[in-house]
């Protein structure tokens, strides 16, 4: 039976996504390890995806364009993770550290 009326309000999903996004931002700013920075970016992307999916289900239930957008976001996130980790690996080979505080070559 399709859920014609949702018992959980839309706001619950939005608040959950907001919590996840803010945790991701905090981790992005405060992580010393470069791998953890990439993980925080993935958390933020997932928060955005939750928003898109909730709106798609609650407001655009027939056309579900939000779900198509989520598919594209997942694709771009996969590409971003692959390239980001390759850059991290190359950086680690040349600096022999993953400490974000020591990646300061371009600082004035």
């Amino acid at each position: 039976m399709p859920a014609t009326s949702f018992d959980i309000p839309l706001q619950a999903y939005l608040v959950l996504a907001a919590i996840l996004f803010c945790i991701g931002v905090w981790g992005l700013i405060n992580s010393r390890n470069a791998v953890r920075v990439l993980m925080s970016i993935e958390l933020m992307l997932n928060a955005v995806n939750i928003n898109l999916m909730a709106f798609s289900s609650y407001i655009d239930g027939q056309e579900i364009r939000g779900q198509v957008f989520t598919i594209f976001v997942i694709t771009v996130a996969a590409a971003e993770a692959a390239v980001g980790l390759a850059i991290l690996l190359s950086l680690y080979r040349n600096r022999e550290t993953v400490d974000m505080e020591r990646f300061n070559l371009l600082r004035w």
């Binding site: 399709p2 839309l10 609650y58 655009d60 027939q62 579900i64 779900q67």
Partner: peptide
């Protein structure tokens, strides 16, 4: 929020995504 949208799809969301 304008949550009184059309009734959501149940099982054939994959079909609609494929059409899109």
């Amino acid at each position: 929020w304008a949550v009184t949208g059309p009734t959501p799809l149940a099982d054939d969301s994959a079909v609609v995504i494929g059409i899109h």
